[in-house]
Nucleic acid binder design. Structure first.
Length: 154
DNA sequence: CGCCTTTGACCGGCGC
DNA sequence: GCGCCGGTCAAAGGCG
């Protein structure tokens, strides 16, 4: 089914504050990703950009999490993700990976974490919403969706 | 060659 | 104030 990838668009789950959240998220990250990357080259200014983001606007983007049973962490959902961090959390012995959608103006973040108990279970958390169409379609995607359980939190 | 992953350091929040 | 904890940055290297 071609509609499957739409399930990953958090917009569908957040009819109430869709446009507001989208614009705020976009605005928040405009300085970082949307703007010139050259400004980030300035070492000390990098912190300022982040500080400004957190200072003015706190958390405004919605989060959506779901579980899947998969062997691999990176579930290819049709979007392009750039990994920007990996950290170990206390409760889980497996590290948590941080990804970001590589598209100007579309700053959707995603965390992938697998449970220490069940290696086969992978928790994926989306943060924000995509402002662009999906780049490619997936075949194995329906397989994932079959096992998927959605937690619409926040 | 361009994009992405890796990886240690850093930062801010929070609890003690 | 200090240290833990979770999230992010950014330089350097890898891989197609």
């Amino acid at each position: 089914m071609e509609n499957y990838p739409l399930l990953f668009n958090p917009q569908l789950y957040n009819n109430n504050t869709t446009s507001e959240l989208g614009q705020e998220v976009k605005d928040n990250y405009h300085n970082i990703d949307g703007g010139n990357k050259d400004s980030l080259v300035l070492e000390s200014n990098g912190c300022e950009a982040r500080k400004k983001m957190k200072g003015e606007n706190k958390e405004r983007r919605a989060r959506y999490a779901f579980q899947t049973r998969s062997q691999v962490d990176v579930l290819d959902d049709g979007y392009r993700w750039r990994k920007y961090g990996q950290k170990a959390v206390k409760n889980n012995k497996f590290p948590r990976s941080y990804y970001r959608c590589t598209y100007q103006g579309c700053n959707v973040k995603k965390q992938v974490q697998r449970l220490s108990k069940d290696e086969g279970v992978v928790v994926t958390t989306y943060e924000g919403m995509h402002t662009h169409p999906i780049e490619k379609s997936n075949d194995n995607f329906e397989h994932i969706l079959n096992q998927m359980q959605i937690y619409t939190r926040f």
